[in-house]
Nucleic acid binder design. Structure first.
Lengths: 84, 84
DNA sequence: CAGCAATATACGTGATTGCGTATATTTCGA
DNA sequence: TCGAAATATACGCAATCACGTATATTGCTG
């Protein structure tokens, strides 16, 4: 389970939360490392779509994670229009 | 080269640009699919850290890409403080 | 249970988003 | 080399960020 796929902001947030907990960190503790408020970390983990990229990257960095982009593997390519 | 690592917003933007071009899309064309303006796509690809997560996810979706989170492999864990 | 730590949520503030629209500027093929 | 297409940038606007700070609420653990 060392490789997790996120196709939505919520999934992404859930992954981050899982990793953070596993690292024995609190939202506040993580926030301290990357100069983000605890409340901001909360929003990131909640999967709010409007958080900024810098917030995500900072969290990834602090959790020693990396982001991989690759072509979608299984599942059909969702019909984009359905998202709106 | 079907799997690309991004540790910064700039790297992420560069990956997106490469994939978009390879797909034969223009910024405007991509924007149409995901209801984003060409200018917004431009900023995303330029690696501006403040673009929103929703913008990234929409682009990934339109390009049929997925996002994978995993522990950092090679390279040292950057000293977080150095980022500030 | 009780009580504290952790998390979610709120307020006002200043900064910045993405929008719609428009225009420089750059790139690239004929 | 020229010209159209593509990209970068700008404007005013409404919305929303993350900030600092504070407080409900939740969740553990003893």
């Amino acid at each position: 389970m060392t490789e997790q796929i996120a196709r939505t902001e919520k999934q992404l947030g859930a992954i981050l939360r899982r990793v953070r907990k596993q690292a024995g960190l609190t939202q506040g503790g993580l926030g301290d490392r990357i100069h983000l408020r605890q409340g901001t970390v909360s929003r990131l983990e909640a999967g709010e779509p409007a958080v900024q990229l810098r917030t995500l990257m900072a969290a990834l960095s602090a959790l020693d994670l990396e982001l991989v982009i690759r072509p979608r593997t299984k599942g059909s390519a969702a019909d984009i229009e359905d998202l709106f």
